[in-house]
């Protein structure tokens, strides 16, 4: 009884918001499964990593195996933003805007060290870590990460989605927050900041 209501509720309040019974538990795992198996990335290639990201989509690595070859140009339809490359101070607001245009549930992979922390470009021009601008779920190391590394990051994300840990973690943060703020030495602060207690 009331599965229709349950679905409505699910859509409105997210997976955590409802009391589970057998049906909804099954439904929830189905939803998680579908989210993991159909994680459409938004096209957000910036630098070197974008090249590797596309190489990952090509024949030798083939993201299509996971149903991920559907790169959506419209952020409205994308589930995953792969920040591939260094984020400059000039680009950061654009990045945030695109992130805001994405619909929940949405995930972010910070691909490569430049996106994760500025990498070797510890200077005035680069945002030292994209998690100052958007909340990051998985970090992929490497400069650029090889396709296997990116795939590992993606599979890690899939695992997190499947286990549901991710949404819970996100909900625990005050505002679905974006990590920590860093005052850069030359006085340039990060462009947009959402504060979250770092555990």
């Amino acid at each position: 009884m009331g599965v229709g209501n349950q679905i409505e509720e699910l859509r409105e309040r997210g997976l955590e918001g409802i009391q589970h019974n057998f049906m909804t538990a099954r439904l929830e795992s189905l939803v998680k499964w579908s989210r993991a198996r159909s994680c459409w990335p938004a096209t957000f290639g910036l630098a070197c990593c974008a090249i590797e990201m596309m190489a990952t989509g090509a024949a030798h690595y083939d993201l299509a195996r996971y149903g991920m070859e559907v790169f959506r140009a419209s952020p409205r339809q994308a589930d995953l933003m792969i920040v591939a490359g260094r984020v400059s101070q000039k680009m950061a607001p654009v990045l945030r805007q695109i992130y805001d245009q994405m619909m929940e549930p949405k995930w972010v992979i910070s691909m490569g060290v430049c996106a994760s922390s500025g990498g070797m470009f510890n200077n005035y021009a680069i945002v030292q870590g994209v998690d100052q601008v958007v909340p990051v779920d998985v970090y992929a190391p490497g400069c650029p990460p090889g396709p296997e590394t990116l795939m590992h990051a993606i599979f890690t994300l899939h695992q997190e989605i499947l286990s549901g840990e991710l949404l819970a973690r996100r909900a625990a943060g005050e505002s679905g927050g974006a990590g920590i703020t860093v005052q850069q030495i030359d006085g340039q602060t990060a462009t947009a900041t959402i504060r979250r207690e770092h555990d």
Binding site: A47, K90, A125
Partner: peptide, 11 residues
Amino acid sequence: IGYLHTGMEKT
């Protein structure tokens, strides 16, 4: 342009 300015010459 400049959306990928990395400050490489400075670095």
